[in-house]
């Protein structure tokens, strides 16, 4: 790309760093707000008890996946449009008014893009990982099969596709037999798309694609934002209170905010805060939420396709999953 087509502007850098630092901070505060159920006093209670470091760590652990989806979508569309601008005639409207996504793409440092792809590889669900291949080809406009010598490039591509087919074959068969066609599609198609997704697109298509892609990126970012602010920052626990009648025990599902010498403060799942005297606190267990239930049974070489690589590695380190009986009984008793 020529400097004339899409000049790098220094104010892009300033905006970029403002975004990188400011957005997580703002998002963290908004999450506390949503977590409190919109109650001002509870928000203040959370702010006073959740340390900024924990907040940022929780944000990183839960939002990385969503953030990288937005970034990868932006880079892919930006890369495609950048190639279109580069290929357009000098008097073309694409050159005179380059699309926003192409300008943002140019302003983004390469190391940042590489970091985003790396984080995506680690945190995306395995079923979505194949999408990173066409996304990378689109962003960096790289077509291995077009490299000279063509016969070598074609051989390499065929071998890579063969290896990929071996890797995903059993999972695709399992998905097909289980009528999970979307999963099969997501595993099979992306590498094939990756072969042809790079390359300058015609001007008419670029002008149509640009606003659609921008709207799509904004849509993904908006959905990601709402997902991010709704994701809990404190772990879910179930506490059985002591001293209750045997035939009518009392359970509390919620998030522990703080513990001192006298009380355990818990933000209840259904809303509201309770200060529990420590003498009342009985068995306490960590529970999963229904959102964590898998939607498919497909496994890729033993790994569940809804796990990320990080999660899969984690499962190898701690393979045992324990569903505490208290989690089941407390759920049914409170709903």
């Amino acid at each position: 790309m020529t400097q004339e087509a899409l000049p790098r502007r220094t104010d892009h850098k300033a905006a970029f760093w403002s975004l990188v630092v400011g957005l997580p901070a703002a998002l963290s505060v908004l999450r506390l707000w949503v977590e409190s159920g919109g109650d001002l006093q509870i928000t203040l209670l959370l702010v006073s008890n959740v340390s900024p470091l924990n907040l940022v760590a929780a944000l990183f652990a839960t939002v990385t996946q969503v953030a990288t989806v937005v970034l990868i979508a932006l880079f892919s569309a930006g890369g495609i449009l950048r190639a279109a601008v580069e290929a357009a005639p000098s008097a073309s409207s694409l050159r005179l008014r380059p699309p926003v996504l192409a300008r943002v793409f140019v302003a983004t440092p390469v190391w940042f893009m590489a970091a985003a792809y790396l984080m995506a590889i680690l945190t995306w669900r395995i079923v979505y990982l194949p999408l990173l291949l066409p996304a990378a080809m689109a962003a960096f406009q790289f077509s291995p099969w077009r490299l000279p010598p063509r016969w070598l490039a074609a051989g390499f591509c065929l071998a890579a596709l063969g290896g990929y087919g071996w890797l995903i074959g059993p999972a695709v068969m399992q998905a097909w037999r289980g009528s999970e066609y979307l999963v099969a599609w997501l595993l099979v198609l992306p590498p094939l798309i990756a072969l042809g997704v790079a390359g300058p697109i015609p001007g008419w298509f670029a002008r149509t694609f640009s606003p659609i892609a921008l709207l799509a990126v904004i849509g993904i970012a908006t959905a990601g934002f709402f997902y991010a602010v709704r994701t809990p920052i404190l772990p879910l626990v179930v506490i059985e209170l002591k001293g209750r009648p045997v035939e009518r025990p009392e359970f509390i599902r919620g998030h522990v905010v703080s513990v001192d010498d006298l009380h355990l403060v818990i933000l209840q799942e259904q809303g509201g805060v309770r200060y529990l005297p420590l003498d009342d606190v009985g068995p306490t267990v960590l529970c999963a939420t229904p959102e964590e239930l898998p939607t498919t049974a497909i496994r890729l070489r033993g790994y569940h396709v809804e796990d990320s690589i990080l999660t899969a590695v984690g499962r190898q380190v701690r393979p045992r999953v324990q569903v505490d009986p208290l989690c089941r009984i407390a759920k049914s008793a409170t709903t």
Binding site: A73, S76, I80, V127, Y128, L131, P134, A135, A138, L182, V183, W185, L186, L189, P190, I193, L195, G196, V197, A198, G199, P200, I201, P202, F205, F209, A216, P290, L293, P294, T295, T296
Partner: peptide, 30 residues
């Protein structure tokens, strides 16, 4: 080549939308 690229980008967009469908699918009976 242009047509192939346009076709692949279209397929990429549809596949991305399919991924969103998988993400929003309700869990089976639990």
């Amino acid at each position: 080549r242009d047509a192939l690229t346009v076709l692949c980008i279209g397929a990429f967009l549809i596949t991305g939308a399919a991924a969103a469908c998988v993400e929003n699918k309700d869990p089976k009976e639990s």
